[in-house]
Amino acid sequence: MAVKNKENKLIVSVSPHVRDGESVGRIMWSVNLALLPAFIMAVYYFGPRAVYVTGLSILAAVLTEHFFQKGIGRPSTIHDGSAVLTGLLLGLNLPASVPFYIPIAGSFFVITIVKMLFGGLGYNVFNPALMGRAFLLITWPKAMTIWYEPTAKFVGMDATTTATPLGVLKEEGLPKLIQMFGDKSDMYLGMLSGNTAGSLGETSALALLVGALFLMARRYITWHIPVSFLGTVALFAWVFGGEGFFNGDPLIHVLSGGLFLGAFFMATDYVTCPTVRKGQIIFGIGCGAITMLIRLWGGFPEGVMFAVLLMNCFAPLIDRSVKPELFGAVKEQKQ
């Protein structure tokens, strides 16, 4: 988009002639950085397997993208950090127990099918990491639902298995769930710190929140999607989550499962969510509502993944219907 006059060496390009320092790479690497606390907590609770699983999925994602682009004769874009991010998010969405081929197959699938075949970064319709998790859950349903106890001990690879809090809540009810932790406050503490069974990166709400606040401070994400998403989940849990109406415990649903990871790091994925802030609120409410429909009345204990993927389908439609407020928009004339 720029031409140079060979005689006087002047460059001609379209205005503006100054730019701020932001780049796609800086944004993507910042999101990677923001996931570091959650990754550290995963390593703390699940030991070396956390490194093993996420390492494999990151490596597979980066290599797949590199060779795919080489194969179709395009410059490799692995330095922009988005393949690393996809691999990292997918890894954090997997149980610690998975065999080596699961993160590799998942990353290969999302980079080729979900990302590159749709046109690469910017053109994918669905959140790659969640699509990968959905693909793996359907392909290896057994292996994808074996949950290790968070031991916080760097010992052998075969820890005891257990159920996730949402699994217990669905199958055995709230009293059993509280009993697992001891009492209610221990339960909340466990969920905040990440001392519960679940996917590697989803269990520590606190670590995820630290990363999310960093992204908000840098203005890489805004409150619109996370707050509307979490708020809707809390509302549903309060109204429908207990005996009768208006009797549920919103905190359990907000702090457990993949909600924090989903609401702050995946529903906010630029490419697959609406761009207009008002539309993002609708998107977040939709995500929250579908999550709770699945959690309370569906066949799965957890619904964040399907909720975000379903709302991804609606993102273009939302962007087309909800526009930013035009300066000087002519108000409806009274007849």
Partner: peptide, 25 residues
Amino acid sequence: YVSSESYSPCIRCGRCIDVCPMGLN
């Protein structure tokens, strides 16, 4: 000088919407 030789696809981050004084997309 800020290079403007190459650009990449829109990642739909919405930063342009946040700054457009006319409220466009």
